[in-house]
Design a protein around this nucleic acid. Sequence first.
DNA 1: TATTGTTATACTCTATAACTATA
DNA 2: TATAGTTATAGAGTATAACAATA
Lengths: 167, 167
Amino acid sequence: MESHKPPGEAGPTASEVVHAIIRTAHHIRHEFEAGSSALGIPSYLTGPRLRVLGAVSEFGPIRMNDLAQKMGIRAITVTQFVDALEKEGLLVRLPDPTDRRATLLQLTETAPALLEKAREASRQVTEKMMEPLSMEMRSQLLDILSRIGDYKQVCLFDDKNVKSTEG
Amino acid sequence: MESHKPPGEAGPTASEVVHAIIRTAHHIRHEFEAGSSALGIPSYLTGPRLRVLGAVSEFGPIRMNDLAQKMGIRAITVTQFVDALEKEGLLVRLPDPTDRRATLLQLTETAPALLEKAREASRQVTEKMMEPLSMEMRSQLLDILSRIGDYKQVCLFDDKNVKSTEG
DNA sequence: TATTGTTATACTCTATAACTATA
DNA sequence: TATAGTTATAGAGTATAACAATA
């Protein structure tokens, strides 16, 4: 019952920080969707699905299970992403010749062009969102966030390996 | 703002930063659920729903519409949160005497105890998650995140105003 | 028996559109 | 007409459990 407010010096509460992260993530998803849509990216091409495409693009034929581990999600979730992307004709399932239980993922012919377009849009949208942050802030942010979670996963669908226009 | 990226490996890409935020949020949600569950909080008492309860607790009878604005979500989303919480007997809808279109939200008698328990659990879980961060890092993080999003909303379900055990 | 992937099911969060009741 | 809230519907993300095929 005794309401004891900590003095300002104590810093933000953990709840506050957590809340800010969650809200930022929500905000980002929102902006990403709006921005992508404005740039002509179909709405089914969401962030997680793009990361799936990006991973397949980067690693070539990859097992669904491996992809799940790389993305830090369950196999069933990958199944569902793949279902959606296969329905849109962006990737296909192939039997793994070395293990008939396994399934390899491969991009279709139409995928790379759309993926590149989406990457470019993503670049624009995310750059715009991160514009208020100096490079130092971005590094700090990454550093701080890396302490919260276990980031063994690669950052899929990044644009580091896919420089297109810029030198 | 000369926020143009110097060439080379000067810093993380915007995509990287965005990705890290999203993954951190996901990680947090995960940990929050696991931790809450371990501490005996029913699984229907999710973060957003707790924020609803927290807001009603803090602001007393509040209109659903006002709550939606405070939380930065749509009225329909509030409706659905309230449906769930009312079903669990944690809050009730009351007619607003000043406007018969409007609905006020109020906690039930059983809510405060559970809310307090959930708050305590939240405190523990979030503190544990944020443990690797120094106070300075937390402040930095909040500062940086605040530049990304528009944080006009109050931070509901925070524990700043509800110190219970600690003295 | 263990692993890979799927089907079936469920639940949360969020939303738009159309609607009712009231202002 | 405009506002407060609801119903109906949808879709995205995520998950568990039970299962099939294969190892």
